[in-house]
């Protein structure tokens, strides 16, 4: 019976999620969607820390980044963003 490389599969899946959501952060048009994708990227980076046996760093990543930095960025997005007048017209970003 062939041993299934669970750890390599998990690394591949979460590396794909991390890279894809990071691309989404820089490529998406609306800054609100970008901040949501940044949350996905930060959480999947926390999972990479778990796979590297750095549990405390992972917990701190979730607490500080997702609980602090992302909330601050969300507030800034809400305070700063102008709603586009015409949904078909691209927003200046």
């Amino acid at each position: 019976m062939v041993a299934i490389p669970y750890e390599a599969i998990a690394f591949g899946v979460f590396a794909l999620i991390t890279v894809a959501s990071s691309f989404g952060v820089v490529l998406v048009e609306d800054v609100w969607h970008a901040s949501l994708l940044l949350g996905v990227a930060l959480l999947s980076v926390a999972i990479h820390y778990l796979m590297l046996r750095a549990e405390f760093i992972a917990v701190m990543q979730v607490l500080v980044y997702v609980g602090g930095v992302l909330i601050l960025i969300t507030f800034a997005v809400m305070l700063v963003r102008q709603a586009p007048d015409d949904p078909d017209e691209p927003e200046v970003a």
Partner: peptide, 10 residues
């Protein structure tokens, strides 16, 4: 208003 995420590809 919710919109689908759109890519900004220039």
């Amino acid at each position: 208003m919710t919109t689908r995420p759109r890519l900004k590809l220039g």
